[in-house]
Amino acid sequence: MAVKEKPVAQEVQKPGWKSIPIGGLILRGGTAAEFHTGDWRTEKPIWDGEKCTNCYLCWVYCPDTSILLEDGKVVGVDYDHCKGCGICAAVCPPKVRAIEMVPDRD
């Protein structure tokens, strides 16, 4: 798959040894969120708010923490991180089918 240029942290001049924490420490949690894996996708989940019953199965099984919640309700997909594995669509109950996988031609 094509690796796109990243306009985020790794593009800027990297700091030298005098200005980074010692020992390879990462002093802030969750910095991986700044790394976008969305461009790994070949397929893309399309979530339908009309059909969704908020059973959370997509949320619980998403390996990339990419099902977005707001006030306890599913509101969509985080395409910055979603890798398009299709688990969300697969676990969505057959009677609901609120998520459909479509080719990602971005």
Partner: peptide, 14 residues
């Protein structure tokens, strides 16, 4: 968080 480099569809993040 997301943004880790596990393969798409990997189970360990769950």
């Amino acid at each position: 968080t997301g943004g880790h480099r596990a393969c798409a569809g990997c189970a360990f993040p769950i």
